[in-house]
Design a protein around this nucleic acid. Structure first.
Lengths: 180, 180
DNA sequence: GCCGTCATGTAAATAGTTACATGATTAA
DNA sequence: TTAATCATGTAACTATTTACATGACGGC
């Protein structure tokens, strides 16, 4: 049984929603699961092609009058099965995030206190705006997709983002106090 | 002014400690900053070579009697300057982590409740052992490096890991309650 | 004699981003 | 008429991991 990378499964998963084109997959990603998975067109289009080649999805080109060609993809039986099997698999790896801020702070003894302070202040600002973004996405899901059964799971992942971000903000504040 | 990727700066930074060989850099990474930056030999050795080529480090081969050759690297003046300049730069990007667990949970409506529950339980276990690892590293730093001025910064980054991991554990528990 | 650790390194494969190319529609 | 959005795709580059190759030393 052939295996794919997680990015491929992510695309497979999105094809179960009403996002059916490369373009709308990208949009959905940016709006809904951007906080734990992001992807570029350079991966989406070749992956869609691969899914069709492997019989996990089907494509039909719709040339609606005027509009440029739109390629609509839909999962096959086999595609849905492949997705389900992947979800069932136990977690392979939980990679640690790569954090440039922590990397810089780790070597903070080579810098002035002021520099370290502004590094942390900048980071706190980024985290705060990220938290606000999560809240906005959350509202969007509650309003636009509340009827869908997926919505509950989507909100769980957002809750994760909010909690972890909040913890990071608190760390910034605590560390700023102790570094001065 | 040539720029490098963060992995190169990480190696540059480690060369300010008493880790001077490719092998010991890897060890230091695995023990101390593994939670926010990891790296393989396939990157370390070529990067060290590059640093020497660019005049940021110097290498001398020490053939201590018997033992295999050991290549010891030390930063040049220019190398230290390059490191300091990088730390000063404002944060370029704060990439969101890629989280396989959240990705699977996001598509959880295609799975049975039991599967989602065990996904979360597995994740919680992983997070708990990760938390324990952080505490062990913390103790290691307090005992072995407490005199070093770097130690304070190292402990800050560990505190981050602990706080964020703790928040994730709490999310697991909360989500498990709500998913059942 | 074998296993674990010390030690260095390369080649190939995989993953992923960025920049580029193209062109239609729509709203200001 | 011009900018934003819709829409698809490729090529080149960068980053990173994995697997392989090699070999010495020390302890059991």
């Amino acid at each position: 049984m052939k295996t794919y990378n997680n990015t491929t499964y992510a695309i497979l998963g999105i094809l179960t929603t009403d996002c059916t084109s490369g373009y709308s997959i990208k949009q959905f990603m940016d709006q809904s699961l951007n906080h734990f998975w992001k992807i570029s067109y350079g991966q989406i289009y070749p992956t869609l092609k691969l899914l069709v080649e492997d019989g996990l999805a089907e494509m039909k080109s719709t040339s609606s009058s005027g509009r440029a060609d739109k390629n609509e993809y839909s999962l096959t039986e086999q595609g849905l099965m492949t997705l389900k099997k992947w979800i069932e698999q136990p977690i392979a790896q939980v990679p640690a995030e790569r954090n440039e801020v922590l990397l810089k702070l780790f070597f903070g003894s080579h810098q002035s206190r002021d520099h370290n302070v502004s590094l942390l202040e900048d980071y706190r600002k980024i985290l705060e705006s990220r938290y606000a973004t999560y809240e906005a996405i959350e509202q969007g899901i509650r309003h636009n997709h509340n009827e869908q059964q997926d919505a509950m799971y989507w909100l769980f992942t957002l809750d994760y983002g909010k909690r972890v971000t909040q913890a990071a903000i608190e760390w910034c504040e605590y560390t700023l106090k102790n570094i001065r």
